Simulated scan of single mutants.
Amino acid sequence: MPTPLSERAAAPETVHEPTHPEVTWRAATAADVETVLALYRAAGAVDHPYFVVPRHEVTGKFSSSTVDPARDTMMAITPSGDVVAAGSATLGAGRATEVQTFIAGTVHPNWRGRGLGRELARWQVDRARQQLAGVDSDLPGSIGNFTEDHQDDVLALMARFGLQTRRYFTEMEWHGGHVPDVAVPDDVRIVPFTRELSEATRHARNDAFRDHWGSQPTHEERWSQNLVDNEHFRPDLSRVVVEKAAGGPRVLAFAMASVDEENWAVRGWRVAYVDLIGVRRERRGQRLAPAVMAAQMRAVRDAGLDGTILDVDTENPTGALGLYERMGYTPAHRGRALLLEI
């Protein structure tokens, strides 16, 4: 009989707050959104100057049903009231094949090298273990973190707590230019995304990503908060492939996009971000992916934008990396997925 996750997680009974002689620590609250966002953006200007941390990455910690801010967030405050470190541990809602929790955080560039990151990471891993131990399951468990490829200090810190590189992700760019014409089967059509197609698209996403590394089903709340109800989501730049079905249109493929104009200044071009691209597994190999991508690229070009960016798992089993290159995308930056398997 498999060992329950509650035993494998090796969680401490009590997760002690970090300690450091120069700061005090406490959980974050909704009233701290602006100061925490300012911290992340100050750190981002050094760690990843080519993109700006979006507001929803901070506000989402206070609106998600899977996050208890009082237990799942932590920040360091100087005697003058400045927030100089912050982090969280977030338990994933989708648990089809694995129970996942993710740790994320940063330290202000002016305060690095003083041990704040080490204290924060210790707290995060202890809290993540506690989260996993609280799930009644015998599925595999993991603690994950995403970081930029060049952040050697973060990689060393995560390794200290057992998180090792498991996957590389490449950010790719399309700077306008030629868009190929791609024919689609007669039984389907490509249309702009609408709210009426939201649930059908979510189901298509969950089917398309079932064989992707680390992917778990996206539930309604996350779909809403992170995508279709996000202030940056652009339905006019999103395209879906649909077929007729008894219960209404069935989504077979999708290319979803968002635009955060705050990124235009740091990137130097007017860019849309491709949040998701996928094809239902039974319809792969029918050119639906390049067709829906081409439709989206034309929509972006017609909207007067300069191009698009997307992230791809370099070991994606569908051959997505090669597809994107054939569609005119070129690699720009690389990140890593770090993992501690439980």
Rank of each mutant, 00 (worst) to 15 (best):
T106K: 04
D152S: 11
E98P: 01
A128S: 10
Q151T: 03
H150F: 13
R114Y: 13
P109Y: 11
A89Q: 07
L116W: 13
E98T: 13
A159G: 14
Q124C: 14
I143D: 01
Q130M: 08
A85Q: 03
G87T: 07
L155V: 06
R95K: 14
A104G: 11
A104S: 14
E119Q: 15
D138P: 07
A96E: 13
V84L: 08
R122P: 08
D138C: 01
D149R: 07
D138H: 10
S142M: 15
H108L: 11
F102W: 10
D82E: 15
A104L: 07
V107E: 01
N145Q: 09
G87F: 08
L120S: 02
N110A: 15
L116Q: 08
D136M: 05
G113D: 03
S142L: 15
R114F: 14
L155G: 08
H150K: 07
Q151W: 10
T147S: 14
A128I: 13
G92C: 06
D152T: 12
A156M: 03
G105Q: 08
F102E: 13
V84F: 02
P109A: 07
T97V: 06
T106H: 09
V83Q: 02
I103N: 03
R129E: 06
H150D: 12
E148W: 14
S142W: 04
W111Q: 00
N110Q: 12
G94S: 00
T106V: 15
L116C: 05
I143H: 01
M158S: 11
H150N: 08
H108W: 08
F146P: 01
M158W: 04
L116D: 04
D82S: 13
G94A: 02
A86N: 05
L139W: 04
G92R: 11
S88I: 13
R95Q: 15
G141M: 03
A128P: 09
E148K: 11
L120D: 00
I103L: 14
R127A: 06
G115T: 03
L139N: 01
V135L: 04
I143W: 01
A133D: 07
Q151V: 04
L139M: 02
Q131P: 06
G105R: 13
V99G: 00
L155E: 09
A104R: 12
W123A: 05
S88F: 15
S88M: 14
A85C: 06
L116H: 07
L157H: 02
A96R: 15
R129G: 09
L139P: 03
G141I: 09
G144A: 09
E148N: 10
L157T: 00
